[in-house]
Write a protein that binds this DNA or RNA. Sequence first.
DNA 1: CGATGTCACTTGAAGTGTCAAGCTAAGTAG
DNA 2: CTACTTAGCTTGACACTTCAAGTGACATCG
Lengths: 142, 142
Amino acid sequence: MLILLPASLDAQLQRDSGISHFEYAVMSALSEAPQRTRCMSELADLANGSLSRLSHVVKRLERRGWVRREPRPEDGRYTNAILTGEGWDKVVESAPGHVEAVREMVFDVLSEEEVEQLRRIGQRIHLRLSPHGMMAQRHGQD
Amino acid sequence: MLILLPASLDAQLQRDSGISHFEYAVMSALSEAPQRTRCMSELADLANGSLSRLSHVVKRLERRGWVRREPRPEDGRYTNAILTGEGWDKVVESAPGHVEAVREMVFDVLSEEEVEQLRRIGQRIHLRLSPHGMMAQRHGQD
DNA sequence: CGATGTCACTTGAAGTGTCAAGCTAAGTAG
DNA sequence: CTACTTAGCTTGACACTTCAAGTGACATCG
């Protein structure tokens, strides 16, 4: 399940929208940000990827006209990635299909009770894996 | 969680044993087979990968001395992949660390009850995603 | 003011995955 | 026996990820 589910979700996005799940995550994170803008390192964290990977991907998204980059005015070390109008349209066009796929693959086959159980289980495992979760480990509490 | 867990498991294997999760799955599937032997297409299914990907990976495993290939005697279209002695040792050496990682990341943070819930939930989603699961769905095409 | 350090990011090369095309062995029809 | 089809697998080109090294902007210290 841990292999098939991510692969299936990736495949749906690739098939229906021509983008990878990572690209979707990046554009989606931008679409929810104030000014549709975030700096690269923040974006890398949100999309769960390395800065290097993000840099390559944003270069491709820029080439496709969905994102543009500019240095942050008050500190030139930061690079702001900004979702363009076309990028916004792309997210709006891709999102419903992706959400529907998640519903079909996951929520449709579970009862309401199971959804709640999965939420708790996922939360615990996620907490254990996130950097913060490692801290809490010794004190055995969440 | 769906992003972090596979990534963390991959990272553990890469760090401690120098192999990818897919390579581990391939060698593990061979180690459990009669004669430590399976044909390529069967192996691709078991490891949840394409035949092409498997072919490339087995070529690399062969170069590292962990697997060898030979045509099946009674039907030359099939290629048998066979785990070597060294390959067996590699699996035996890698398995405990990987099993322990899964335990730490998943089972340690869940109660017995939650483990049982996760088993049921995983089974349902897996069934929905596997080719057979699509059939079982009430004739709904997508 | 210049040297040094750090931070945020980019780049190029090497490795890996994917896709389409090709190869060989076995089966089938005339 | 020849021609065609199918099954199982391999290959090569291209795209993506990763890793190590590099760049430029700002901060600090003498």
